[in-house]
Design a protein around this nucleic acid. Structure first.
Lengths: 210, 210
DNA sequence: TGTAATTCGTTGCCATTGCAACGGGAGGTT
DNA sequence: AACCTCCCGTTGCAATGGCAACGAATTACA
């Protein structure tokens, strides 16, 4: 399973085994609802979800909860945090189902003399960089002022990445509204206006750009 | 000078020389206004500004220009882009003054057998991760709905990172407004309201949280 | 020192959008 | 089938904030 993990891509099973055994990993199982990492923690470990699922959430100053990421099997977390070295975690990671996590110590990985560690660092750079760009795209959208421009930019982005003018997104209205930084009702209102204007067609989370 | 570069921190001059000579770097000088990298380019090189200064800018769908970063001496660019491997550059990099740039090929760096390359990758990870978090903080602010909450969150963040309730920021009003994703006039209006309400005091770009 | 240019604060106007409340429809459960 | 729950669309209201225009203040420059 780890062979498919974004962190170990390009390595064969033996090498992965080797690295896991020599860098001092640990495996922890959490009950549903249990906190895996607290907002504010300064972690040095990269976590890999082996079984179950978890979410990364964050609380604003106003106290409202925001779901920052959904961690399913074989997803990793804490990589950017470990990489930044000394930053406080902006999110709380909480088990949704019963959940087993493999922790790899980043420092040990860094100072291991494995020639394979190089490959892992490369994978880590690629992963963090890609996260950076996704965030960057979202920022570009959040900076826009009107709801319509946000929707347009978002939909064209989705069309580009899914390779067609007819596509299904993997968010419901509420998540989409959160992503665009607008009210759900305002989003619905503007979507129906755009449909009336003949710009788009949609049903639920399937969209067509006309 | 490169010893102080974020990419080479922790390495001594000899090692840096060695790496530069064996990984095939190239040095290019640009005239003021000349384009160093185009939006949409797929680059594999990390650029280091040796002399002069440049800016990274980006154009929205609406055609307005956004300054994404200011590149002074010894700053690097293209690191996230190289790291992501295959992504198109979201920004155009343009020389402001006459400008000399050292390009390092990322692939060569990856496949170099230098033990020092490891250290550079670590530095690169730290740099990209930190950029990620700064972006993350900005996103958190951009998602807020009222101008006042944006200002409050921003100022407390600055107070935290500068270690005091009285501090100077390195942006003028226009840049600050862009950063918060609001109109300059709306920002000024809300700032003066907050002063009247006794929450803050300020003059130009110096702020005090009361 | 005089002039130009840049930056910032202020204000009026009003479109946009947040907010709240409601209703309908789809899907799941007993 | 009846009921419940979740998700989405709709709408009225109020006000936030974008936009534009202007003036004051500070700086730059000659």
């Amino acid at each position: 399973m780890l062979k498919e993990n974004i962190l170990f891509k390009g390595l064969d099973t033996d090498r992965i085994q080797q690295i896991i055994h020599t860098t001092g990993t640990r495996e922890v199982t959490y009950a549903p609802g249990e906190i895996i990492m607290h907002q504010g923690d300064v972690a040095q470990d990269i976590g890999i979800v082996l079984q179950g699922s978890a979410i990364g959430k964050k609380y604003t100053r106003a106290g409202e909860e925001i779901i920052a990421s959904v961690l399913t099997e074989n997803k990793i977390f804490g990589d950017v945090l470990s990489g930044a070295d000394g930053f406080a975690s902006p999110v709380t990671v909480q088990a949704v189902t019963k959940c087993t996590v493999l922790f790899i110590n980043y420092k040990n990985l860094l100072y291991s003399s494995h020639p394979q560690a190089h490959k892992i660092l490369q994978n880590m750079i690629r992963n963090i960089s890609m996260k950076y760009f996704v965030q960057n795209k979202r920022m570009e959208i959040l900076m826009l002022k009107s709801v319509r421009s946000k929707i347009t930019t978002y939909l064209e982005w989705q069309a580009d990445s899914k390779g067609g003018r007819s596509f299904t997104i993997d968010m419901d209205r509420q998540l989409m509204a959160d992503f665009l930084g607008v009210e759900r009702s305002a989003l619905s209102r503007e979507l129906s206006r755009m449909k009336k204007d003949g710009l788009i067609d949609y049903h639920k989370n399937h969209f067509v750009i006309l």
